[in-house]
């Protein structure tokens, strides 16, 4: 290594150090501490007691809530993820139209993405209130008796999934950036060749948007697994644990049941699940993500 390279390396590390310090203090250390606590019984205010693998044994062999919360979360991910990806893309296509006042629409659709989750949850309680809510009132105009939504055993989880599309404007903005990066000359050439709009979408837009889709898939996947606020504010995990999501279970164990050791084990399990899904998506991306270069 030359003296210049050493100097460059030093400068690089120096520039990196604030982020590294933040990573070590706020991420690496808490993760390692969580790993340690997952092998303990700890009420938060007393000394942790080492219990070896007991928390993990309980989790995998005799905890029905672990199974039901994982099931509810997986169902939610399966419902909300495609919904958000497809609707986000559709919205982005609309927002990409060249029309006067489009910037206003873009802003309007993005606003929900930055509103507090608790405020949004409270608003949706009113939207979906069975007797007086906006949705059921509108349905009643067309002769449809709306369900009990959050308070119906079969509708509670789909209601939370429907609610998640509220933030689809955030995804649409990312898609929009991807759409605007697609070179215009490709569309012009296709148009001259007589390609229909649908064909242009399938042959140009979608393939060139796959890197954005890939990014969005990973972000939304992680976000969906972390579903919590809606259960905490609206359903309290009910009815009949239909919306008893994994993070809600974690929260109850940690801060209501003072079982921080077990909660740490749950948190690590979720980390492994999310990481595995992310790795899987990443590994398969070579087959469907197209990079122009």
């Amino acid at each position: 290594m030359t003296a210049q390279e050493r100097r460059d390396a030093k400068t690089g590390y120096l520039a990196l150090s604030p982020w590294m310090a933040g990573f070590l203090v706020f991420y690496a250390f808490p993760i390692l501490a969580t790993l340690y606590f997952s092998f303990t019984q700890w009420t938060l205010v007393d000394r942790p007691v080492w219990i070896g693998l007991d928390n993990y044994i309980r989790m995998f062999t005799r905890d029905p809530l672990f199974v039901s919360s994982l099931k509810a979360t997986t169902l939610f991910v399966a419902l909300s993820l495609p919904l958000k990806l497809v609707l986000g893309l559709m919205l982005a296509l609309l927002l990409n139209l060249k029309m006067p006042g489009m910037n206003v629409f873009r802003t309007v659709f993005f606003i929900p993405a930055v509103i507090s989750g608790v405020a949004v949850s409270l608003m949706w309680i009113w939207f979906l209130q069975p007797d007086t809510g906006v949705v059921n009132t509108l349905l009643s105009y067309v002769g449809v008796q709306g369900p009990y939504w959050f308070w119906d055993l079969h509708w509670a989880l789909p209601s939370v999934a429907i609610m998640s599309i509220w933030k689809v404007g955030g995804a649409a903005i990312i898609y929009l950036a991807g759409l605007q990066n697609i070179p215009a000359h490709l569309y012009e050439a296709a148009e001259i060749d007589g390609a229909s709009k649908w064909r242009r979408f399938w042959r140009i837009t979608l393939p060139l948007l796959t890197p954005t889709l890939f990014f969005q898939l990973i972000i939304e996947l992680i976000d969906a697994f972390k579903i919590f606020t809606e259960a905490f504010v609206i359903t309290k995990g009910g009815p009949l644990k239909a919306t008893y999501f994994f993070l809600y279970y974690f929260y109850e164990e940690a801060f209501r049941n003072f079982n921080m050791g077990y909660a740490s084990a749950l948190a690590l399990f979720l980390l492994v699940v999310i990481m595995s899904c992310t790795v899987f998506v990443y590994r398969t991306s070579g087959r469907w993500v197209y990079y122009e270069n």
């Binding site: 809530l65 055993l153 644990k241 109850e252 209501r256 049941n257 003072f258």
Partner: peptide, 18 residues
């Protein structure tokens, strides 16, 4: 802390008329 959560199903079943 723990038991009420384990037994809440009976409550929910009655509330839902199930």
């Amino acid at each position: 802390g723990a038991v009420i959560r384990a037994v809440s199903d009976a409550w929910d079943l009655i509330m839902l008329g199930e």
